[in-house]
């Protein structure tokens, strides 16, 4: 259990930095752990081999989360990584030190704002392409593998 708590704390750290570019405080980490103890987000459904790989990969680095999340957003919406991210997002939007990072925009002139959105959109596009190259073959392989006669 201690091992799992440690893994979840590290996972929460990476995911929180990914979502809102800051570290989670102890309250958020504890809430994230508690949710997992209660069975969220998978409600005790067993993870497939592909899911396990995705979760482990996502934990390693910000870029890894982004790749997995980009892939999930288009091709695998109910993926466990995306579900974990949504769970954390729900916690962050209710937590005292982090809700404003989701709620409160910085003031930009309109042209600057739209430029930032376009730049981020292009970045998403590039990450999505990367995720297709990396993950589609793996997804197909592991899906085929699980269906192959034993």
């Amino acid at each position: 259990m201690q091992w799992l708590d440690k893994v979840l704390a590290e996972e929460c750290m990476v995911f929180c930095r990914y979502l809102i570019a800051c570290d989670p405080d102890p309250y958020v980490i504890e809430k994230y752990r508690l949710a997992h103890r209660l069975g969220h987000p998978h409600r005790h459904n067993p993870l497939s081999r592909f899911d396990e790989i995705l979760v482990r990969f996502a934990r390693t680095h910000l870029l890894a989360v982004q790749i997995v999340d980009a892939y999930s957003s288009m091709f695998y919406k109910a993926s466990p990584v995306r579900s974990k991210l949504v769970l954390l997002l729900a916690i962050l939007e209710c937590s005292p030190r982090t809700f404003e990072k989701i709620d409160r925009p910085r003031e930009y002139p309109a042209c600057v704002l739209y430029s930032i959105i376009i730049a981020k959109g292009l970045m998403f596009g590039a990450i999505l392409l990367t995720s297709l190259v990396l993950l589609i073959p793996l997804h197909l392989l592991l899906t085929t593998d699980s269906k192959a006669p034993r």
Binding site: Q66, S73, L85, V86, E93, P105, I117, G121, F124, L128
Partner: peptide, 20 residues
């Protein structure tokens, strides 16, 4: 807001940014 943010067909980091 998390039910709305996740509906955006992008990664969540971008979605959070846009939602703000």
């Amino acid at each position: 807001v998390h039910p709305l943010i996740q509906r955006t067909p992008t990664d969540l980091r971008f979605a959070v940014f846009m939602f703000k």
